[in-house]
Design a protein around this nucleic acid. Structure first.
Length: 474
RNA sequence: CGGGGUGUGGCGCAGUCCGGUAGCGCGCAGCGUUUGGGACGCUGAGGUCGGAGGUUCGAAUCCUCUCGCCCCGACCA
């Protein structure tokens, strides 16, 4: 049988598309750049949603929903915002068969319409902080698309908060970035570098933007989630004000932050291997698949009885699937490997006879024989081991592909390997643009807690003010 | 919008140079044999060859026009 998945090393782009197809995650939509997410792919997104939503609830945020159609005039109220987004807007000009007096924009993000409402919801300092999150879809008419990583329409959550002080807003911005970092690390086993965006890379309408940057298997970086300190930019544009304790009108200080279905792409590209997807157990729709093996109807009855007994004995919170299809074992093994299921539990005549099961880990392919009586208590540790194994492999990859550069020659050399390149930095936005032009690399972030003392910027020769992380990116 | 490709059953492709009325692999349906790593045999369903016009007795193939899609880049979660 022909290989269904192109090896990663042969053609990384083709490998990615093959995995999405063969694992049954998504299809191309009829409109260029759109994507249909199949049930299995959506189940992964649902796990992301559940994990994040629990964290948002813990930080006091409430879910709400705002309309998808936004009057064009709303976007035009904030200058930097409209300039940043206007090239990629989808605009509705006809409704109910009539040309509309004012065009409606399909939301590319919801800062404007949310401020429109916040301005009416917020009256007093007692109404603050206002902590809102929205799960929705947005449309950005991108020129170049790729499944999950960049599609015309995507699903995400966008958090929007309003605060009484600049300090509180900055604290919230950083707090939510830390939520994303924790989620990426603990749930997705995706190592990320948290840091600040440069002026050139920040969100249109923000004072400061923060990001977590992942490094994917092909050496390209991916902005995996962002958190923005909006300052008073939207508050001033929409008159979002509150009366403080001294009976004085004040503009609120705001934040917004988001994580999208792009993150599913980050998971695929961080963990996937030549056999297909590898899912971290905490996000896997199916954590363990039980594959019965038998030769005839009589053997099948015996094995299936053992399978049902095992399934009943396993903890209820472990997501188990029994593959009872009448297919050859090898076929089923391969299929679940492509789908990235963390644990495969094989039960055949020999296992039943000896009172054991054969457990195969997806992270390292290791196979072990486990007494069937021990599995109900041991499966949690096995899943944790796969979770840790995936994180260890991914973080080792990031470590091995992060290089330091101290001069133009070593910068070029380091970039040629792909991956992150760390430099001392004291450059302008124009310098960044020139480097992007020459090398195709951009500053992904200015990582936190990286002292720049005594460093000299490799590009300008000036004393460094910060450390910058360069990479080619999606 | 630049550069490079490509449109032929559900998917992946051959056939195009040198016109003769469409083929292969996978998948799908039925039956049988199989089942501890992607099984095999037999039977079968499924395509106006991206579209339009032209040349010709005859076009997937030659000519003209046109549309779509993919990859690399600019833009970007």
């Amino acid at each position: 049988m022909a290989e269904r998945i192109t090896p990663r090393s042969t053609d990384h782009s083709q490998w990615y598309l093959d995995v999405i197809r063969e694992a049954g995650l998504a299809d191309y939509g009829p409109v260029r750049g759109t994507m249909v997410i199949r049930p299995y792919g959506y189940a992964i997104w649902e796990r992301v949603q559940q994990g994040l939503d629990a964290m948002f609830k813990a930080t006091g945020h409430q879910n709400a929903y705002f309309p998808m159609l936004i009057p064009m005039s709303f976007l035009e109220k904030e200058k930097a915002h409209v300039e940043g987004f206007s090239p990629e807007l989808a605009v509705v000009t006809i409704g109910g068969g009539k040309v509309l007096d004012e065009p409606l924009v399909i939301r590319p993000t919801s800062e404007t319409i949310i401020n429109h409402m916040f301005a009416t919801w917020i009256q007093s300092y007692r109404d603050l902080p206002l902590l809102i999150n929205q799960w929705c879809n947005v449309v950005r008419w991108e020129l170049r698309t790729r499944p999950f990583l960049r599609t015309l329409e995507f699903l995400w959550q966008e958090g929007h908060t309003a605060h009484a002080t600049a300090e509180e807003a900055e604290e919230e911005t950083r707090r939510m970035l830390e939520v994303y970092r924790t989620f990426a690390h603990d749930h997705a086993a995706v190592p990320v570098v948290p840091g600040r965006k440069t002026e050139r890379e920040k969100f249109a309408g923000a004072d400061r933007s923060y990001t977590i940057e992942a490094l994917l298997g092909d050496g390209k970086a991916l902005q995996s989630a962002t958190s923005h300190n909006l300052g008073q930019n939207f508050a001033r544009a929409f008159n979002t004000m509150y009366l403080d304790a001294n009976n004085t009108q004040q503009y609120v200080w705001q934040t917004s932050w988001g994580l999208s279905t792009r993150f599913v792409g980050a998971i695929i590209l961080t963990h996937g291997d030549d056999r297909g997807l590898r899912l971290p157990p905490r996000l896997a729709p199916i954590q363990a698949v039980i594959v019965p093996i038998y030769r005839d109807d009589e053997g099948k009855a015996t094995v299936m009885a053992a399978v049902e007994a095992l399934r009943a004995a396993l903890p209820a919170d472990v997501r188990v699937h029994v593959d009872a299809r009448d297919e050859r074992p090898g076929f089923k093994f391969t299929e679940w490997e492509i789908k990235g299921v963390p644990l495969r539990i094989e039960i055949g005549p020999r296992d039943v006879e000896q009172g054991v099961v054969t457990v195969v880990r997806r992270d390292d392919g290791s196979k072990q024989t486990v007494p069937v009586a021990e599995l109900p208590t041991g499966i949690g540790a096995l899943l944790d081991a796969v979770q840790d194994g995936l994180y260890a492999q991914a973080s080792e990859f990031v470590r091995a592909n992060t290089r330091d550069a101290v001069d133009p020659a070593s910068f070029t050399e380091a970039l040629s390997h792909g991956g992150f390149v760390r430099v001392f930095w004291a450059g302008s936005s124009d310098d960044e643009a020139a480097i992007q032009e020459a090398h195709g690399a951009t500053i992904r972030c200015l990582p936190f807690d990286q002292p720049a003392e005594d460093g000299i910027c490799f590009y300008t020769g000036l004393p460094a003010t910060t450390v910058a992380l360069f990479a080619r990116a999606y």
